[in-house]
Nucleic acid binder design. Structure first.
Lengths: 189, 189
DNA sequence: CCCTAATGTTTCCACTGGAAATATATTTGC
DNA sequence: GCAAATATATTTCCAGTGGAAACATTAGGG
């Protein structure tokens, strides 16, 4: 009959999905271990078997978040024009933050999730790789200094991440990220 | 004798100071109502008389933070050269974040403090005014669009706030903020 | 001087994450 | 096949948290 089995079967993924749904629906402040477990229909200690602790679960949720984040950035990428590619990636970055504000905050909260986790580390790295590719199209620093690439990446990342963060904090009005970007030179391809 | 009086005398300010000291020493995660109260030597319900709730106390702490934040930005301001003034303000912004990382995080966490509080609102506004003054020296957007000033401010703020945030999250290497600033034109004075 | 308002304390409650012991199901080894 | 080992989930307990309510103490203004 419809009696629920003792074992869930796919609890690990179900907990991650539940966490993201609670984040989108109720916010980071209401994301408790007990809330996630109750959402799935298990006791609040069940997640421990799969994630060790709340921190482990949040880390897995953040990793999923970074994978979707990278998808958002890659979504509008088409063609070879460096400037339009940059615009698309930056807009995707902001669009993700605005669409999933609480997940986005979690993803950048080292007090909540562990970036030494291989899965989260890889997911965050893949997201950064998109940004790295965009920065490579910039003709900004002609100094030839060894850290010129890094600094170009950090400049791009700082602008887009800063705007996204301020927007989520209610401190920035809704603007097109392209309208607050400095004017760069671009490398031809 | 050395018996402690029933009334503290200056509990309100003592609680704010204690909060900031705990923030700097133990971090935002350990900043509890009970910890602050115990630090001062009162019961955990005593703050309610002065701040209503933990949120009210955190709001007052954040306001103090923004006043110090503005001081950091103004600290290096001297002379009339727009570019060096910009550099000094931006460096002050980052220096504050690095010096008081947990206070800085609190100051930009609307989930923890209330920006509709007049005191916090004013303090944050005063801090923003420094940035506004710096942005006024920029010769960046010649479009003459009505929101050109706002966009210049948001561009500056996004870069510096983004870098500070990423640095506190352990995602940005230590760099001089001036080295990841775009090259602007500047207005003569 | 006394009454009122301000300031603190005590006690209680609902909530949190985690530890430990227990129950149940699945898988492995023979 | 079947027992033993492992994986998964529950129950119970504990130390925290912030806040509400009732009470205690003090300060100040008629």
């Amino acid at each position: 009959m419809g009696k629920k089995p003792y074992h869930h079967g796919a609890l690990k993924q179900a907990l991650i999905d539940a966490g993201i749904e609670i984040l989108d629906a109720n916010g980071l402040e209401h994301l408790s271990l007990r809330a996630i477990a109750a959402y799935v229909g298990v006791s609040h200690t069940a997640p421990k078997n799969h994630f060790g602790s709340l921190r482990g679960l949040l880390t897995a949720i953040a990793a999923t978040g970074f994978r979707r984040h990278a998808d958002f950035m890659r979504a509008g990428l088409s063609g070879d024009d460096p400037k339009s590619r940059q615009q698309a990636a930056m807009q995707g970055y902001v669009r993700f933050a605005v669409t999933h504000p609480h997940l986005f905050r979690l993803m950048f909260s080292p007090s909540l999730c562990s970036f030494d986790d291989p899965d989260l580390s890889a997911a965050a790295g893949a997201s950064y790789d998109v940004l790295r590719g965009i920065a490579a199209g910039l003709d900004w620093d002609k100094s030839g200094a060894p850290d010129a690439d890094l600094r170009a990446q950090m400049m791009l990342w700082s602008i887009v991440h800063g705007y996204a963060t301020l927007a989520l904090a209610g401190m920035a009005p809704p603007l097109d990220i392209g309208d607050i970007m400095p004017n760069f030179g671009y490398l031809s391809r």
